[in-house]
Nucleic acid binder design. Sequence first.
DNA 1: CCCATCATTCAAAACATTTTGAACGTTGGG
DNA 2: CCCAACGTTCAAAATGTTTTGAATGATGGG
Lengths: 178, 178
Amino acid sequence: MHQTLNAVNESTATGLARLARFFGFSDIMGRLYGTLLLSPEPMSLDDLCDRLQISKGSVSMTMRDLERWGMAKEVWVRGKRRKYYKAESDMWQVIRNVLSGREQREVQLALHVLGESVEKLQAAECQLSPEEQQLARYYLDRIADLQAFFQFAQLALHTVLGSEKSLDFEAITRIEIE
Amino acid sequence: MHQTLNAVNESTATGLARLARFFGFSDIMGRLYGTLLLSPEPMSLDDLCDRLQISKGSVSMTMRDLERWGMAKEVWVRGKRRKYYKAESDMWQVIRNVLSGREQREVQLALHVLGESVEKLQAAECQLSPEEQQLARYYLDRIADLQAFFQFAQLALHTVLGSEKSLDFEAITRIEIE
DNA sequence: CCCATCATTCAAAACATTTTGAACGTTGGG
DNA sequence: CCCAACGTTCAAAATGTTTTGAATGATGGG
């Protein structure tokens, strides 16, 4: 294959590895996704091992993750016994999968914990000394700020997840201006 | 101090540690920030060591990071020689600091690399065999998708960073009901 | 100028994550 | 039913990250 094509392949895989890392996934996950994304033909586990020079165990495990996150799909190639994979090439779909899984859970957990703290503080108020009451009010102020942040995040997520097609810019700018 | 106050303190610090980890910072960074956030008085390095049960070296290094990211500030307490710190309590400011540093760089780097790939592919086109040309066009399509994604991210970042307004609790809840 | 009191540094230790590869399933063709 | 060709698993090795603490540097009071 021409050297330029290889170079582009390599830098794309490296860039996606970086992006994966940024989102808390493994390096290999990004490289596998990038490699599949630039392959017009589905690839087998052995193809991927060979291309990326990593063990078959890693590829097998990581492909399962990619499937779980809706970033790759299994493909049957007739006449072949091997498993073949192709990348989900709709980036918006991938983004939505990731956001609706991990990120949304994160935000909801945070809001839940913060809500519990508020309840605890309110319930305990009458048992507190005057100084402690003052501190409790201070806590409630800071917690309110955190809640505002997470509620903003929740709204932003909801907006992105609600959009069926490729995300339009109008939606996001509207949130910020309000 | 009352047990409820301690419990809230602890769960807030733990929650912020989790958030820090999510954003690619260290655990301790989140815990220190959370601890400072819930302290009406500035705290010294030794106060923080004592509260979080971690070595002074860690606290010293991590406080430098927190300062670098605009998440905490040094405070002089008259009559004391120690350094005292307080959290930057404006969450919106903290978010802007983080986004305008790391995240923005990340997006710009990605766009730069993708742009280079497009140039390389276009420059090499005339040297390619017909099959290679077809593959190059496939690459250009996939790269265009990636560029669209990063350009969207860039716009979203720009919008958030451009807004001066800090979000308050009431404003957010009002938006969500609409 | 010296001492006491802090803060900072950084090499090594503790800890956590990722990757490997040999052993073990599974499946389909013969 | 057996073999060959694959996929999967998981304990251990490699690698990467975080934390410690002893040594060192800085600074103000006396």
